[in-house]
Computed example of a mutant assay.
Amino acid sequence: MIRIAVIVGSTRPGRRGESVANWVVDTAAALPAVIDGRVAVELVDLAAFDLPMLDEPVPAAFASYAHDHTRRWADTVAGFDGFVFVTPEYNHSFPAALKNAIDFLYAEWHHKAAGFVGYGIHGGTRAVEQLRQVMAEVKIADVHTQVALSMFVDFTFTDPADPTDPGTCTPGPHNVAALGTMLDEIVAWSAALKPLRAPAAEPLSV
């Protein structure tokens, strides 16, 4: 079975990312590969891990983790074959919490596939472009198709004038189609890369 994690990349109170991630998981449930049990798509919420700012004394490439929170995060990431990163755009980039979570680990990311669901005024496109550069460094193959959700047309708000209203993710048909294509690409690449993946994090040899 191919396991895909949908990672909620924002930990901000009142974030919209949780609604977006739930939409991704719910939409993925209709994929034939998920229905017949060949693929599992699961939600992974960074907020549930309560990671501090990177506090490991040894670089992640050595896989010598001193803290329980790092080992818990490493075990979670190691168990997946691919990822969907759900990210807002903060000041032309993606959230610090997501970069911090990526930086905690190294080998656990290797030889896996990833796709991106961005959201924001500009659809999170600039955040995704920066994430693609980070993916290359941790040896993740990022797929071409991505989803860009606009705050103006892809969310429904109870009170549009209330900045604390997170709203509900209600994407149009073209974004549903794009997500389906992206998930198919992630599954295909995750399966293709499987022979290269180590069974567990391997420390760097020196």
Rank of each mutant, 00 (worst) to 15 (best):
R3S: 11
A5F: 00
V6M: 02
V6I: 03
R12Y: 05
R15Q: 09
R16E: 09
R16Y: 05
R16L: 08
G17S: 12
W23G: 07
V24L: 04
D26L: 06
D26F: 00
A28W: 03
A28Y: 05
A29P: 01
A30W: 02
P32Y: 00
A33Q: 15
V34Q: 07
G37H: 10
R38V: 00
V39A: 05
V41L: 02
E42A: 05
E42R: 04
L43M: 11
V44F: 04
D45M: 04
A47V: 10
A48D: 15
F49I: 04
M53G: 15
P57Y: 12
A63N: 14
A63P: 08
Y65D: 01
D68L: 13
D68H: 10
H69D: 02
H69W: 08
A74F: 11
A78C: 12
G79F: 06
F83W: 09
F83M: 01
F83S: 04
V84F: 03
P88S: 10
E89S: 09
Y90D: 02
N91F: 07
A97K: 04
N100C: 08
N100V: 10
N100A: 11
D103N: 12
E108R: 08
E108N: 09
H110V: 00
K112F: 00
G115T: 00
F116V: 02
I121G: 14
I121L: 15
G123A: 12
T125K: 14
R126S: 13
A127Q: 08
Q130G: 08
L131A: 07
R132I: 04
R132N: 06
V134E: 02
M135H: 11
M135W: 14
K139D: 06
I140E: 03
A141Q: 08
V143I: 11
V143H: 03
T145N: 02
Q146K: 13
V147W: 11
V147Y: 09
L149R: 06
S150N: 12
M151Y: 15
V153K: 05
D154L: 06
F157W: 10
T158R: 14
T158Q: 14
A161G: 06
D162W: 07
P166V: 10
G167T: 05
T170L: 10
G172L: 13
A177P: 00
G180S: 03
M182P: 11
D184I: 01
D184W: 01
D184P: 00
I186Y: 03
S190L: 04
A191D: 13
A191E: 15
L193R: 08
K194G: 04
R197K: 15
A198R: 01
A198L: 09
A198S: 10
P199A: 01
P199N: 00
L204Y: 12
